[in-house]
């Protein structure tokens, strides 16, 4: 198991865990969200190539209404 921080909350994940698989488990499709991993924006095309590691900080962001 590894601990990561996702949107400010600490969660435990089993390893290995690909970003694309983890995202699917949260209910979001890769086309709906944008992901920042340790401060770097991850292009959608790379989601299935990224392995989540102990201490990773994830931000999962979506576009919403705003002025």
């Amino acid at each position: 198991m590894a601990k990561i921080i996702a949107n400010g909350n600490e969660i435990e994940i089993r390893q290995p865990y690909r970003l694309s698989d983890w995202l699917q488990q949260t209910g979001w499709k890769p086309t709906q969200v944008v992901v920042e991993l340790n401060g770097e924006v991850i292009p959608r095309s790379q989601f299935s190539n990224v392995e989540l590691c102990e201490g990773d900080r994830l931000e999962v962001i979506l576009p919403v209404a705003g002025g």
Partner: peptide
């Protein structure tokens, strides 16, 4: 214009789901 916010990761229905 559109804004950004954190997605709800709890699996619940997000009433602010993607504005696009």
């Amino acid at each position: 214009t559109v804004a950004l916010r954190r997605a709800d990761l709890t699996g619940g229905k997000d009433k602010f789901a993607n504005i696009l």
